[in-house]
Write a protein that binds this DNA or RNA. Structure first.
Lengths: 247, 247
DNA sequence: CGATCCATTGAAAGATGTCAAGCGTAGTGG
DNA sequence: CCACTACGCTTGACATCTTTCAATGGATCG
């Protein structure tokens, strides 16, 4: 289950060529807070390694916190182990999104991060980011905003789990993935779910069987079409209504 | 239900005398990050108003974000309204704790904050805090840590809701209140719950009836003693085991 | 091609929610 | 000071949703 990153010789040919100013994600990623002339300064502190294979870890619980990461390609999940030993997935991260801020509180990460498919990330050493932030107030502010939004997101998640039934939770997740895909210029109506039903259920506090049943029901009612990991949203209005929950 | 702050003449006689350096909470509040000689600089930007009465709001959803707040006395709850119109309580805040960081993401607060009992807070204007932070790196870092820990806390909450049953959730909350009371030098074994059963259930995703039943059961099994809002923990080990959840 | 993992579906059990009734406490007004 | 009222809390009976247990089918990968 737990595959460690191996020191493979494989080298991604694109690594060297990528920089923030030519990255397609720079309209939604860290650079969004910066003027054109400052993007280069950010780019200079970013480290780009070789991609992670499916199942490999970016970091693990209790690893020392050194950096935050921007997803460049692929998809990752963050998770920790609850006191009774169960895994709890805390988030899915798609290209352009920032992760790793959980380590700031104690200087140790309190989540593990695992690739759901082959994924590459940009590593942003935190002390250099902090340093750069003192010179670029908008970067400083942007980072605080990212953290604040993460708090808000988690609170929304708590509301979802506390107040909504299984159908509504799944509808919400599908809509979330959809809009995040749209934001990066991909289709919001047909997309591949990067995570397994099990991960999906774990994240939403549902068993795999319940997830499967809801998918079947949504499909039967022609709100979505499902084929393996590919989902098509057929009736977004109905899905939004479901996500909002029963009155 | 919603009582607005009235412009009462009542003035708290203590307000003027309080400052961070003589505040009993300065070992757990914002000043904890500062050297003695810098505490005064923090103190100078803090505004202390008259106390809020039970039910009064400190701020509401969509109020512009201007400040974060340290609780000086009393207890408050943060809450927002979910899409289907239900209230979701997102946290309870006790003396020495900081709230209001939710507004940073969009410059609008996404929670309302309401006093559960007569409460006073220290208002810390954010732009002045930011300014001071550039001169006091430890303050800057402390603030980031506060936010990061809030993210972690919310994630723990998600884990609690997703993986633990009603009994375990309530045990966890009691232990949380207990340890937060201990931290400020109060009894960790006997304390007053500042919130109603309804608020407690809302926060934990349970109905008021379930909360009541669990309290009765815990009392019957002599893990706690309950008298109105006062709770005594009789068997902390058993409670911790419960909080951890069934194997 | 076999092995394994993942997903689907059914039947039954269990936890929590809903509905309903009653009690105690606190606050209000006479 | 007492009675009345309102609200919060408790408890019981029943309903509902989700889980659990079980069996089967399908996909992926070596």
């Amino acid at each position: 289950m737990q595959i460690e990153t191996k020191n493979s010789i494989k080298q991604c040919p694109h690594n060297k060529q990528v920089s923030c100013d030519n990255c397609k994600l720079n309209t939604i990623c860290m650079p969004v807070s910066l003027h054109f002339e400052d993007i280069d300064r950010l780019n200079n502190i970013i480290q780009r390694g070789k991609p992670l294979n499916k199942g490999e870890y970016l970091f693990r619980v209790n690893d020392p916190f050194t950096s935050v990461y921007a997803v460049r390609s692929g998809a990752l999940k963050t998770h920790f182990v609850t006191e009774n030993g169960a895994e709890q997935i805390t988030g899915f991260y798609l290209p352009g999104e920032i992760l790793g801020m959980d380590g700031l509180g104690t200087d140790l990460h309190c989540n593990s991060v695992q690739a759901l498919e082959t994924s590459s990330v940009c590593k942003i050493p935190f002390n250099r980011l902090e340093e750069l932030s003192t010179k670029l107030p908008s970067l400083q502010r942007h980072f605080l905003q990212l953290m604040s939004r993460e708090i808000t997101q988690e609170q929304q998640m708590v509301g979802l789990l506390n107040k909504q039934n299984a159908e509504s939770r799944i509808a919400s997740l599908l809509l979330s993935i959809s809009s995040r895909n749209s934001r990066r210029g991909l289709s919001g109506s047909t997309f591949i779910l990067p995570m397994s039903r099990k991960d999906l259920g774990n994240y939403l506090g549902l068993t795999i069987e319940t997830v499967s049943r809801i998918f079947s029901r949504l499909q039967k009612n022609e709100l979505i079409a499902v084929e393996q990991k590919e989902v098509s949203i057929l009736d977004i209005a109905a899905l939004q209504k479901l996500a909002k929950g029963p009155e």
